[in-house]
Design a protein around this nucleic acid. Structure first.
Lengths: 338, 338
DNA sequence: TTGAAAGCGCTAACAT
DNA sequence: ATGTTAGCGCTTTCAA
C-alpha cells in the first residue's frame, strides 16, 4: 500500500541501507551476490527511488529535469522544438517539464519560479518579458538558461534563433526577382522581436533594390488569422493594389491565403510566408514559404544547455540557424507586365 | 552565489525557521509585522522554496506536478490535448511534465517509472503497451492515472476517448447517403486501438446498409503519409475502383488527398477523414472530416485526474467524447450514376 | 566489501 | 504568536 523506501528494500534484503543505495546507483565495490539480492528485493517491492530525496544531500543537487517555457505547447513551431529537445534530453535520462507562456509577460516570471521551486537543472525559454535581467541571479547560482526563438534582453546567455532578417530578405528578394515592386508586408504583433526582425529584413531588401517607399504597404500588429484576412482584403482594395504579399508569420499567411481566395486573386497575387504551413504544398496554389529549422533549433538549444551543465563557462552567445526558401508556386507568380 | 534556504531567510529576518515556513506557506497565526519582515528577507535573498524538500515530510507528499505521456508532443492531436490539460493544471498551480512515447511500448514503462521517481501526483497516459496491469500497484499506492485517447487493458481506471466507433459510422453513413457503395477504408496500424475501433464503426455501418462485402476494400497498417498514398493509388487502380474513401487517420488522409490529386481524381472521388487536418478548409476540394474535440478531451482528462486527487474513489470509467462531422466539400461528392 | 551516523531543506508535532 | 525537535528518503562521511 505505502510506497516502499530504500530502507524497506534494505530490510527485505537483510542488508544495510547504504548497500542498497550503492546497488541502485550502480556504485562500485558491491559483490555480485549482494547486488543480485538487493535487486531482487527492490523488484519484489516494485521500488522506485525518489530522485529529489536523493538530490537533497548529493553534492551536485541535480534532479535530471529541465524546464521548457514556450509560447504555446500547442503551437506547431514550439511543439516541434519541444520534441527535438526531448530527444536530446531523453538520451541523458533527463525529463522535460513544459509550460506555455501564451505571450503573457507575467507568466514568464511565474513559470520560471515554478521551475526553480521544483529545482530543475536548467531552463530553455522563449523570452516574453521586455527584459530578462531578473534571471542574472539564477545564472550566478549555477542555473543554466538557454533562450530559443528570440534573444534575451539585459542578460548575456546562449540563444538559438532563426535568421529572421536574412530569411525575410530572401523572401523579399525572391519576389523582387519576379518583377514585383508594389509589395505589401503583413506582420504580426510588433512587440514580438521576431516580427520586428522580419520587417527589418524586408525593408533592408527593398531598400537595396531601390524600391520607392510609395510602392510599399507595411501593416503590423496582426494578431490572428481574422485580422490578417481583413488587412489583406483592405490592402488589395488600395489603388493601385500590390502585386505581391510577404506575410511574416504562420497565422498571418493563412489569413492572407483565405482572403485572396475569397477575392479570386490567389492565382494572380504572389505570396511568400515566413514559417512553414502544414499541408502548404497541397493548397491551390501551393504556398511558397521561408521555413524554419525547428528540429535544428531544438536540438541545438538542448545541446547548449547540456554543454553548460557539463561545465562550459564560455560567454553566452547567439546561435543563428539558417532558414530555407521552399518554392511551391504562390511565390513564383510573376508581376504582371506594366 | 549559493541558493538560499529557509534557514538563511530565518537568520536574515532574525526569526525561527518555522515562522518563515508559516509565512511562505500562508499559514495562520502570524502577526502582520512578522509576516512582512519575513517576506522582505525572502525577497532580498530571492528565496524560492524547494517544493520537493517540503513534500518529503508533509503528510500528503504532494509535489504539485503531474506527468503526461502521449504519442508525441509534436503531434497536433497530442499537443492540443496537452495545452488543454495544462490550462486546468495551471489553475491549481500544478506543473506538467510531458514526454513522447513514440508508439514504442518499451517507452511507456520507462517513462512511467521516470515520472514516479520524480514523485508526480498523478499521470495522464496514452496507453501504448498491450497491457496496463503493471500499473495496478501504483493505483493501490494512491497514484491516480487517467488514460487519454485509448482505453487501458487489464486495469480499471478513468479513460477519456473520442467516440471512434460512432464517428467512423457517421462518416460512413455520410458517404452512403450520397449514394456511394464501393467504398475503400484506409486505416493506420491495426495494433493501435483507435484504428481498430474506427474500422469497426465503418464495418458496422456498411453492414447495416447491406452493402455487399465485394464492394468494399479494407486496407490497414498504413503507418505514414507515403504508405497511405501508395495504398490509395493501388486501390484506385482496382476494377471497378471505389467511388469514395474513408481514411481513418490524419496522415493517412493527407496521403490519400495527395494521391487523388496526382491521379486527377480529387474532384471525382469522395473523401472523408477521421481527425481534423490543419487548413483542411483551404484545400481543393476542402476536406470533409470527423473532428475530435481535443480541448474537451484534455480538459476532461485533467478534471478527472484532479477529482481523484481530491478524493474521488468511485470506480474508474470511460468517458466518451463525441466527434463532429465537418462538411467541407470532399465528402459531399456524390456517387456517379450507375 | 559493508554499514552506522549525520545531515540535505523542509514540515509535523509539540513546546513555550 | 513564535520556536524547538524530530524525521521525511536519501547520500555523504567515516568507521569496521
Amino acid at each position: 500500500m505505502r510506497r516502499p523506501t530504500m530502507r524497506d528494500v534494505a530490510t527485505l534484503a537483510g542488508v544495510g541501507i547504504k548497500t542498497v543505495s550503492r546497488v541502485i546507483n550502480g556504485e562500485p565495490n558491491v559483490s555480485e551476490a549482494m547486488s543480485e539480492r538487493v535487486l531482487r528485493a527492490a523488484a519484489a517491492l516494485d521500488y522506485q527511488p525518489d530522485v529529489h530525496a536523493g538530490s537533497l544531500k548529493r553534492g551536485d543537487r541535480r534532479t535530471s529535469t529541465i524546464g521548457l517555457l514556450v509560447s504555446s505547447v500547442a503551437n506547431p513551431f514550439d511543439s516541434q522544438v519541444h520534441r527535438a529537445i526531448e530527444v536530446v534530453a531523453a538520451e541523458r535520462g533527463v525529463a522535460v517539464f513544459a509550460a506555455s507562456l501564451a505571450e503573457d509577460p507575467e507568466n514568464e516570471r511565474t513559470m520560471v519560479h515554478a521551475s526553480i521551486r521544483r529545482r530543475v537543472d536548467g531552463l530553455i525559454i522563449t523570452p516574453t518579458r521586455p527584459d530578462q535581467g531578473y534571471l542574472a541571479v539564477e545564472l550566478d547560482r549555477g542555473l543554466p538558461v538557454v533562450f530559443v526563438d528570440r534573444e534575451p534582453t539585459g542578460l548575456m546567455a546562449d540563444a538559438v534563433v532563426s535568421d529572421n532578417v536574412a530569411g525575410a530578405a530572401m523572401a523579399t528578394r525572391h519576389l523582387l526577382q519576379r518583377g514585383h515592386r508594389r509589395i505589401a508586408f503583413l506582420g504580426d504583433l510588433d512587440r514580438v522581436q521576431t516580427a520586428r526582425l522580419r520587417r527589418q529584413g524586408f525593408l533592408e531588401e527593398v531598400g537595396r533594390a531601390g524600391v520607392p517607399t510609395v510602392d510599399l504597404q507595411i501593416i503590423t500588429d496582426l494578431h490572428d488569422e481574422e485580422s490578417a484576412a481583413l488587412a489583406a482584403t483592405r490592402v488589395m482594395s488600395s489603388v493601385p493594389p500590390p502585386t505581391a504579399i510577404f506575410s511574416s508569420q504562420n497565422l498571418v499567411t493563412i489569413g492572407v491565403v483565405r482572403a485572396l481566395r475569397e477575392l479570386g486573386l490567389s492565382r494572380t497575387v504572389a505570396v511568400v510566408g515566413f514559417d512553414d504551413i502544414a499541408l502548404g504544398g497541397l493548397l491551390d496554389p501551393p504556398i511558397t514559404v521561408v521555413a524554419q529549422d525547428t528540429q535544428g533549433i531544438g536540438t541545438l538549444a538542448a545541446q547548449r544547455l547540456f554543454a553548460r551543465l557539463d561545465g562550459d563557462t564560455s560567454p553566452g552567445q547567439t546561435y543563428v540557424v539558417p532558414t530555407t526558401l521552399i518554392q511551391r508556386g504562390s511565390g513564383e507568380i510573376p508581376a504582371p507586365p506594366r
